[in-house]
């Protein structure tokens, strides 16, 4: 995770201090460092690339506005940015529940298939299944599984972002994984096709 280490954290503080005095380059470094994680998080939360772009943009506009108000003693920059992105994502989901409908239509069209086209198709279908099931999880489970399993943050970091205890993170993650597994299995069974590439070879 970027910015989680002590050195990175110190660099963030220094960069933000310079940015607060008007150093555009310093802010650019901060932006380059965190834009992708914020975008990925927002995209996974909302299931929409457009919404993720808006949220990412808004997160950094908030950072520009609150550069002087950010206090590194309270949270690392990554936790701070994740927290803003989480609030904006939840707000957006509440406001536009129709975005959930976009989940099924979202796919990574830029990816090229593997050497075996059937393998590539199976992988794409499996990813779409996971994306759809993830988007159908309740938000409190979705955010914890995205942060822990997709972004591979520590329990402590996730607890700080979500403002809950580490024990609550553990229990939510356990429940989220259970739900994810159940629904993935059910989804694959309903479509009568295997989930992964290895299974394709067995079924052909």
């Amino acid at each position: 995770m970027p910015g989680s280490g002590a050195a990175d954290g110190a660099a963030d503080v220094e960069l933000l201090h310079r940015a607060a005095t008007g150093d555009k380059d310093a802010f650019g470094v901060v932006f380059e460092r965190y834009q992708h994680v914020v975008y990925r998080f927002a995209r996974a939360m909302t299931g929409s690339s457009d919404a993720a772009e808006d949220i990412t943009q808004e997160v950094f506009v908030v950072l520009i506005r609150d550069l002087r108000r950010y206090t590194p003693e309270r949270a690392t920059l990554s936790t701070y940015l994740y927290g803003i992105a989480r609030n904006l994502s939840r707000h957006r989901l509440r406001r536009e529940r129709r975005l959930l409908a976009c989940l099924s239509g979202l796919s990574c069209v830029s990816e090229s298939y593997a050497a075996d086209p059937f393998d590539g198709m199976a992988d794409a279908e499996a990813r779409d299944d996971v994306r759809r099931v993830l988007g159908g999880l309740p938000v409190r489970y979705r955010e914890v599984v995205i942060l822990c399993d997709l972004h591979e943050l520590s329990y402590a970091d996730v607890a700080a972002i979500l403002r809950i205890s580490i024990g609550a993170v553990r229990s939510r993650l356990h429940r989220a994984r259970q739900l994810l597994r159940q629904r993935l299995t059910r989804s694959a069974a309903s479509t009568r096709r295997p989930l992964a590439r290895s299974s394709v070879r067995w079924s052909v």
Binding site: F31, E32, Q35, H36, V38, Y39, R40, R43, A44, A52, E53, T56, Q57, F60, C108, E111, D123, A126, R127, D129, V130, R131, L134, D149, L150, L180, R181, L184, T185, A188, P194, L195, A196, R197, S198, S199
Partner: peptide, 23 residues
Amino acid sequence: DVDSAWRAFADADARVGAPDRIR
């Protein structure tokens, strides 16, 4: 099967980058 599907999803997600227009 579930694990490999999740891994495929996570790998694809890790390759996602923010568009330049955000910058």
